[in-house]
């Protein structure tokens, strides 16, 4: 067989190449993938990017040593650390984003612009099934849930229940990628889902404000920057221990002026615009 002859030559080649492997969240992927394009062109770096399994895929593949950099749109949880005790997870923030609750046009125009945390929990647990119960049109609520493992989902249940493990058992139609979510919400009447706020374009899908202590807080830049909006979340790249070598080159670039421009270009908040430090238990 030809492969038998190819094998040794290829194996010897593999030692020479220094490939930087990245995997994780599709949300963080956008600026990182574009940064990688720049580094590939300018520094001739060999960078491979994938988005298998979202944030949790990034955490587990870094934990197993299959990649050098993870991309996550949520924090590394204690459970994650226990699952991979050998990995010294180091989170490096590259920007800020928020999880928005997005609705379809008919809901938005039907008058639903704000919801409270309690209402969201009621919808999630199936106690509220119709938009008229939250001041909207008489239409059933179609909730598209982000699939498990997605950072967006974890941030959402963390806000509602404090811990993903405490989230109640529910079954909804599931969506995976951000565009899939946007597309399905936009084309379905009475639809609601969780989506990175930068994808809520205000034309096909609309981001609801959250009512906190009587104040309506919209997921807009100012509120995300000051972290008043409760579902804001940091966007991280993740390394095992202090970044070094190729990983460090990438991360330095992401934190540089040009890298931060890419973060901004994709609708996220660059670090310089962040006003308040994160408060997290």
């Amino acid at each position: 067989m030809k492969l038998a002859i190819l094998f040794p030559t290829l194996l010897s080649l593999s030692a020479a190449a220094e490939t930087l492997k990245i995997n994780g969240s599709t949300t963080v992927n956008l600026p990182v993938a574009e940064a990688a394009e720049v580094l590939r062109a300018e520094k001739k770096m060999d960078i491979q990017i994938d988005t298998q399994g979202g944030s949790s895929g990034g955490i587990s593949m870094l934990g197993e040593g299959l990649v050098q950099v993870g991309m996550i749109s949520k924090h590394v949880s204690q459970t994650d650390r226990e699952k991979f005790p050998k990995c010294q997870y180091k989170e490096i923030q590259i920007g800020e984003d928020a999880v928005a609750l997005i609705v379809s046009k008919d809901v938005w125009e039907g008058g639903v612009k704000t919801v409270t945390k309690e209402q969201v929990a009621d919808i999630y647990e199936g106690r509220i099934k119709n938009w008229k119960e939250v001041g909207g049109p008489d239409r059933r609520i179609v909730f598209f849930n982000k699939e498990p493992g997605r950072g967006t989902w974890e941030v959402f249940v963390h806000w509602l229940y404090g811990d993903p493990k405490k989230a109640p058992q529910v079954s909804f139609p599931e969506v995976g990628g951000n565009e899939e979510t946007r597309n399905k919400v936009a084309s379905t009447k009475g639809a609601l889902s969780q989506l990175s706020s930068s994808w809520a374009d205000g034309k096909t899908v609309f981001a609801l404000s959250l009512k906190v202590d009587g104040k309506e807080i919209a997921p807009v830049t100012a509120n995300i920057a000051s972290r008043i909006y409760p579902l804001s979340r940091p966007l991280f790249v993740l390394t095992n221990g202090e970044p070094s070598g190729e990983s460090k080159v990438l991360i330095d670039f992401l934190l540089s002026e040009r890298g931060q421009q890419l973060v901004k270009k994709h609708g996220y908040l660059p670090l310089a615009e962040l006003k308040a430090p994160e408060t997290r238990p």
Binding site: L10, L13, A17, A36, I49
Partner: peptide, 21 residues
């Protein structure tokens, strides 16, 4: 191939076997 062989971006001509998507 989605779990075993291909990734989204950055892979070029594979230069090895084990880690070459």
């Amino acid at each position: 191939i989605m779990f075993t062989a291909t990734i989204f971006a950055g892979a070029t001509m594979p230069s090895g076997i084990k880690e070459s998507p």
